[in-house]
Amino acid sequence: MEKDVLFKKRMTELSKKAYYRGILTFSDFLDLNEQTMLQSLSLKDTGVSVKLWGGYETAERQMAAFVPDAFCCEEDYPLSCLRIQPLNRKFSDKLTHRDYLGAILNLGIDRSKIGDILMEAESACVFCHTSMCDFLIEEICRIRHTSVKAERITEITDFPVPRREELSGTVASPRLDSIIALAFGTSRSSMLPFIEGGKVFVNGRNVVSNGYALKDGDIISVRGKGKFQFGTVTNKTKKDRYHVVLYKYC
């Protein structure tokens, strides 16, 4: 609880600084819990709006920009993207998201300075605070037994976006527990601990009701499982089941 209080105090201070100085202020990368807490703060009448960005539209970890109402310039987030890839792909290990993140954090970098990590076929793209960019390029040279190099992606238009695969199936009802069970190929009962344990987020907001009704286009994140977008209900079967389409992020 003390950690949550300190976080809210910090966000309020950034908001006040933006308002009184008439400048943009930015947070570090916020996880989904922190984004939910930020959205719960009463900042609407402070003369400051909050905008979130993590390098691409559906990023899970995002920075908050506190923008004074009179500010008319585009937000320039202190965010960079690095591509980390093996020096010799023929002899490289099969590296996972956990491998890349672990190697970065082992350098002593705080998790709040690192955004999403998007996996590619033989490399990974890491969103990070711009202040960490040169350090990572210099220091990240080995992951497990694989020698790697990091290069900065200089053009925002070249930033990666996550790959998605389409899934479809039938559910008894288009409610949260049924849909996430379909998305991750498991039972509704096995997903209940995730929902009740506060590990499920819809559009960045924590949802603890298994009967929550999803809307077309909702982004659902389940900690420890992954992320997907709810497409739509296409039709109802003769057995009164709902045929739905989902888009699972790879």
Score class of each variant (00 low, 15 high):
143 I>R: 08
172 A>E: 07
149 K>H: 08
143 I>V: 10
159 F>K: 06
126 V>S: 00
122 E>M: 04
168 S>N: 08
151 E>V: 06
126 V>H: 00
163 R>F: 03
159 F>V: 06
147 S>W: 01
178 S>Q: 04
155 E>L: 09
170 T>K: 12
177 D>Q: 01
171 V>C: 03
179 I>H: 14
175 R>T: 01
156 I>Q: 12
121 A>W: 01
153 I>M: 04
177 D>M: 02
123 S>R: 04
133 C>S: 09
174 P>V: 03
131 S>M: 14
130 T>L: 09
133 C>K: 14
182 L>K: 15
126 V>C: 00
160 P>W: 08
167 L>N: 05
167 L>I: 09
175 R>W: 01
149 K>E: 05
144 R>K: 03
179 I>M: 13
179 I>T: 09
144 R>W: 00
140 I>P: 14
153 I>P: 01
116 D>V: 07
132 M>H: 05
151 E>N: 13
170 T>Y: 02
144 R>G: 01
150 A>L: 10
164 R>V: 11
149 K>S: 05
132 M>Y: 02
164 R>A: 15
175 R>C: 05
168 S>W: 08
159 F>R: 10
158 D>N: 10
152 R>S: 15
129 H>S: 07
136 L>M: 04
146 T>A: 15
127 F>R: 06
137 I>D: 11
119 M>Q: 11
147 S>Q: 13
125 C>H: 10
166 E>A: 15
130 T>P: 12
170 T>L: 14
158 D>I: 11
181 A>H: 09
117 I>H: 00
142 R>N: 02
169 G>Y: 03
169 G>R: 04
158 D>Y: 13
127 F>K: 04
176 L>F: 01
146 T>I: 09
137 I>P: 05
131 S>R: 06
158 D>L: 14
137 I>L: 12
154 T>K: 02
161 V>W: 05
157 T>C: 08
139 E>H: 14
178 S>H: 09
120 E>F: 05
136 L>V: 07
133 C>L: 10
156 I>W: 12
140 I>G: 07
